[in-house]
Design a protein around this nucleic acid. Structure first.
Lengths: 231, 231
DNA sequence: CGGCATCCGTGACGATACTG
DNA sequence: CAGTATCGTCACGGATGCCG
C-alpha cells in the first residue's frame, strides 16, 4: 500500500476567492468566450432572443439542462450584464429574465453559428428535441434582404413563431427579435415545412424561388406580403 | 463502512458506447455548438486560421490548455471534419494540423465573437497572455471594406502579423486568413499600438481617420498602401 | 407552483510525469 | 517532439427537498 506521495504537492490552493474560470488571454475572442463560452449559455441567449422568459419556461425549452446549472448560468449572465431579472407586477408572482442590449448584441454570433451549423444539421434523430422558434435564426438569413419592415408569422409542422424583419432589424422595442407562438399583429404569414426552412437558411434557394414553385405559401395583403411573394 | 446504498438505483448505464456529449436538439445553433462548443475548440480554430501549425506550436500559443485536452480536441476536430492532420515530408519528422474548408467556414463565427468581445476586453490583466496575431480578427473588421486585394503586414508592440485583405477574402490558397510573424511578401505595412488596433476593431473610428491624425503609420508604395492612406 | 438549493455519481478539465 | 498516463479537482446532469 502506501502509494508514497510522489511529490510534496503541498502547494496551497492559492486562496483563490472563487475564481470564475477564464482563459486569461488578452484577446477579444477569448474574452467573449469567457462570458458566453460555458455550456448552455449561448442556448439560453437563443431562448431569450424570443423575448422575456420565466425560469420555468427556459427550463422547459432547454431539455437536458439541470436546474442548478440553469440557475447558475442565469446568475452569471446577470452579473455579466447579459440579462436582467425583472419582477412582474403583483398579480403574477413571478419574475422574468430578459436580455440587456449587450445580450442582444450576441445575435450576430448566434446567426453565424446557425449559418455554419445549418448544412450539418442532418436528419432529426429520435433523441432530438424540437421547438418551432429554433428555426427562426436560420430563417432570418433568408429574410434579412427584405426592404419592408414588419412582423412575419411563420407556420411550421412543429408549431409557429414570428420574426421582425426589415429596417436593418432596428432598435428593439423590448420584445425579442423573434418570438414563439403567433404574433399579436402580423403583417404577413408564411407556411412551409422544416426541410424548406432549413434549406432557406443554407441559402440553397431564395425565398422568391421557393414561393414561385409552391414550397412556401404566403398569406397577407400588405406590402411586406407582396415583397415576400417576389412582387 | 458500507455507506448503505440509499436507493436501488440499479438503472443500468444503458450500455452507452462512448456517447460524445450532445445537446440533442434539432437546431442549427445547437448542432454547431455540439461541434465547436467545447472548451478550447474555438480558440484552436483561431490559431489555425493563422495557417497550418504543429502540435507544439499550438500548445505554446494556447497557454493554459493541458496536453491531453489539446490532443483530445484535435482528435475530435479531425473526426468532425474541422481539421486534417498532414505529415510533413521526411526531412522534417513532424506533422501539422490545418483547417479544412469546413473549418475555415468558422471565420464569421470567430469574427462575430471578436466584434462582440472587443468592447469588453478592458485592460490587460497581469495574468493575461498575449500574442500579436490575436489582434488580427478585430482588425479584419476595419480592413474588410478595402477594394484592393493583397497582404498587409501589421506591426504592434507585441510583435507582428499579417492579414490577407480584399477580394471579399477570396478562396484560400492553403494558407491562413492571417498569419503570425512577417509576411513573405507584403503589399503594405501598418504600424500601430494595441489600443488603436482594438479601437479600430470596435469601430470607434475608421482606418483613414487614424492614419490622418498619425495614430496609424502606413508604409508602402502600391495601390493597397495608397488605399490604406485614404487616397 | 415557481425558483431555486442540496446531494450525489460521473465525466471533463488542468497539472505534471513519463514514454516512443 | 508529440503526445499518453495518471491523478486530483471541479463542473455537469439527475433527482429530490425546501420555501415563499
Amino acid at each position: 500500500m502506501s502509494r508514497l506521495r510522489r511529490m510534496p504537492r503541498q502547494q496551497q490552493p492559492l486562496a483563490r476567492p472563487v475564481r470564475r474560470r477564464s482563459y486569461d488571454q488578452f484577446c477579444a475572442t477569448a474574452r467573449a468566450l469567457d462570458s458566453v463560452g460555458d455550456r448552455w449559455t449561448l442556448l439560453i441567449v437563443r431562448e431569450l432572443l424570443a423575448g422575456p422568459r420565466r425560469y420555468t419556461d427556459l427550463h422547459a425549452d432547454l431539455p437536458g439542462v439541470s436546474t442548478d446549472v440553469l440557475a447558475s448560468r442565469l446568475k452569471d449572465m446577470e452579473q455579466g450584464g447579459l440579462v436582467t431579472r425583472r419582477r412582474l407586477p403583483p398579480p403574477a408572482a413571478a419574475s422574468v429574465y430578459e436580455l440587456t442590449e449587450r445580450g442582444h448584441g450576441l445575435l450576430p454570433v448566434l446567426a453565424a453559428l446557425a449559418e455554419w451549423g445549418a448544412p450539418a444539421i442532418g436528419d432529426r434523430r429520435p433523441t432530438d428535441a424540437v421547438r418551432a422558434h429554433w428555426f427562426a435564426l436560420p430563417l432570418l438569413r433568408a429574410l434579412d434582404a427584405l426592404t419592408h419592415a414588419g412582423v412575419v408569422e411563420v407556420r411550421l409542422d412543429e408549431g409557429e413563431f414570428h420574426v421582425r424583419v426589415g429596417g436593418s432589424s432596428g432598435p428593439l422595442d423590448g420584445a425579442g427579435v423573434y418570438g414563439d407562438g403567433p404574433a399579436a399583429h402580423a403583417d404577413a404569414r408564411i407556411v412551409l415545412d422544416d426541410e424548406v426552412c432549413l434549406a432557406l437558411g443554407r441559402g440553397e434557394f431564395t425565398l422568391a424561388e421557393a414561393v414561385k414553385d409552391g414550397r412556401v405559401e404566403v398569406v397577407g395583403e400588405g406590402p411586406l406580403a407582396g415583397e415576400l411573394r417576389g412582387e
